[in-house]
Design a protein around this nucleic acid. Structure first.
Lengths: 103, 103
DNA sequence: CTAATATGCAACCATTTGATTGCATGTCAA
DNA sequence: TTGACATGCAATCAAATGGTTGCATATTAG
């Protein structure tokens, strides 16, 4: 869980997920083409995404294909965000009341 | 958006949101009581949460009350996570096919 | 076989981050 | 008013982070 949150914290990594979402199975080089940094930097970001289980890779000869795994994102949505979502309206009206009581 | 993701990346800050979710409107001192670090460290985390608009504060005399704002979390759920959620089954079956083709 | 291509590994560096300590300010209560 | 209490501000520091360069390895194409 923590690994997923930290992986999502970086804009470059979210961009990589976006890229894979648009075209799944891209090789490292393909992904690098869209990023404005060295291949090694991209490799590191992909390693973090893989560590968080957000990306799965398959070695194809000398190439490495990258696949998006949306499951961890879903788990966060279900188990973590859902909690706050449920309390949304309540919390908002609470806050409004408090603010009004200020005046 | 980026500020929200980065704010959520730290476990201490998620714990603070949890704490406010359990009991909204806590003062700085109350929040500190549950955290295993100095008050100043907690202050910094709260500042980051406030920066990301996840927490709103109201000064009450010499105390400061903290309120959870779930809106940014909801926006992420709607505008960002939703995208990946929609492609979930497709992406999974894609991945499965690829993996099977490997054997 | 050999050269080009795709990726891996490691050392290194600057910046950011998370936390601390010390002191200042502001407010309430006796 | 004075002392206790709640919070604010700033300097400092170690560790993590994001990026680079240089070289190594492995695979494919000619």
């Amino acid at each position: 869980m923590d690994a997923v949150f930290r992986a999502l914290a970086d804009p470059t990594r979210r961009q990589l997920l976006d890229s894979l979402h648009a075209r799944n199975g891209q090789t490292l080089n393909a992904l690098c083409a869209e990023m404005d940094m060295t291949r090694q930097a991209v490799t590191k970001h992909l390693a973090i995404l893989e560590e968080a289980n957000l990306v799965t890779t398959i070695r194809k000869g000398r190439e490495k294909e990258h696949y998006l795994n949306p499951v961890p994102i879903n788990e966060i949505a279900d188990r973590w965000i859902g909690k706050f979502e449920r309390g949304r309206l309540t919390a908002l009206s609470d806050l409004k009341k408090r603010l009004e009581r200020e005046d």
